[in-house]
């Protein structure tokens, strides 16, 4: 059993004797204190080398009968012991809480934050976080203060992503020992569907509500032309300008109420639900980028037309969690 394999989270199906580790590692809701049951410690390769050095020095001292050699070896052995305790102490007693996350699109890394609270009067140095053997960040936690440490995880599926079990470790102060813990906090993050690269709004999906009259009544002033963007209303296409060049142009109006648009599940023609969601995601993003008012209609859920970052996130979340 190599050192490296010990530091990985063990495969409990193959090593039932180590199942206690699994029970102790969570998932925890709220705060968890890294007490003595959850912090493990082993010498690093440098630590093993150090003990080899001590053995050689001890043999030399015995052979040459050098008392100060004994003193040096025993002092260093003592330092090794204290270093073990100090490394353990650097991690143990830390309090962890879920620290939130930033939602991301499917295929992009999701950044989870973990709050590390140090209630002791001593500083904790060089605490690293890793998951599946990849290290993400190293932080110090000052005395009686809170620090945030982050790790990222990529999901291949939309929906809710569990943060999963991560590993906090430290080799401070000597690098002779590594103390670590495996912890899972109840922490989930929304993963939005991966947006389709391009999407065309199906004919008739864009409905101008009651404001239609105002529009036709010419209460708004024509303000200019711009290139057609996916999701633009067909009613506003300037056919004259389109005929002159081979591209579509949209007429823009100022002063009046913004254009309204429904992004409707039932009007999207796609092979599967996931494809449909991908197209709808794209439409939401485009509508938000075009600063239009848009609403979302899913078979079991409806979000009235609105605009802004919050609204966009709400729509994306609804798309992400569709079917959950």
């Amino acid at each position: 059993m190599s050192l490296a394999s010990l530091l990985r989270f063990p495969d409990f199906s193959r090593r039932p004797a180590l199942a206690f580790i699994s029970r102790r590692s969570g998932p925890f809701d709220g705060e968890v204190t890294l007490d003595k049951h959850r912090v493990y410690i082993l010498p690093t390769k440098i630590g093993v080398l150090f003990s080899l050095l001590l053995i050689i020095l001890l043999l030399g001292s015995v052979n040459y009968g050098k008392s100060l050699g004994y003193v040096l070896v025993f002092l260093l052995a003592g330092v090794g012991n204290v270093a073990m305790l100090a490394t353990w102490r650097n991690l143990a007693g830390l309090r962890l809480r879920a620290g939130g996350c930033a939602p991301a699109f499917c295929g992009e890394p999701v950044r989870f934050a973990v709050q590390l609270q140090n209630v002791d009067a001593m500083r904790r140095y060089s605490i690293a976080i890793s998951q599946n053997g990849t290290e993400f960040e190293v932080v110090d936690v000052g005395p009686d203060s809170v620090a945030q440490i982050h790790f990222s995880k990529t999901s291949a599926q939309r929906g809710l992503l569990d943060a999963g079990r991560f590993r906090l470790s430290t080799e401070f102060p000597t690098g002779l020992f590594v103390a670590w813990t495996w912890i899972e906090l109840k922490m989930q993050c929304v993963v939005y569907p991966k947006p389709a690269t391009r999407a065309r709004l199906p004919v008739g999906s864009s409905v101008i509500d009651g404001d239609q009259n105002r529009l036709s009544g010419g209460l708004e002033e024509y303000s200019g032309l711009r290139k057609f963007l996916e999701g633009d209303s067909w009613r506003r296409v300037s056919w004259k300008a389109t005929a002159r060049s081979d591209e579509l142009y949209t007429k823009e109006f100022a002063g009046g109420a913004p254009e309204l648009q429904w992004i409707d599940w039932s009007t999207i023609a796609a092979g599967s639900a996931e494809q449909r969601l991908a197209i709808m995601t794209r439409l939401v993003l485009d509508a938000e980028a075009a600063r239009r008012h848009y609403g979302l209609r899913l078979p079991d859920y409806e979000i009235p037309p609105q605009h802004g970052t919050l609204h966009c996130q709400q729509c994306l979340k609804a798309l992400a969690l569709y079917g959950y």
């Binding site: 025993f74 330092v79 204290v82 102060p173």
Partner: peptide
Amino acid sequence: QMILLAVPLMLILFVLFPRVPGPLW
């Protein structure tokens, strides 16, 4: 700090570690 904490351990080892007379090689 670490070394001062190590001193008591060093003293115990120094006093109690069995002394082997003569060279090993």
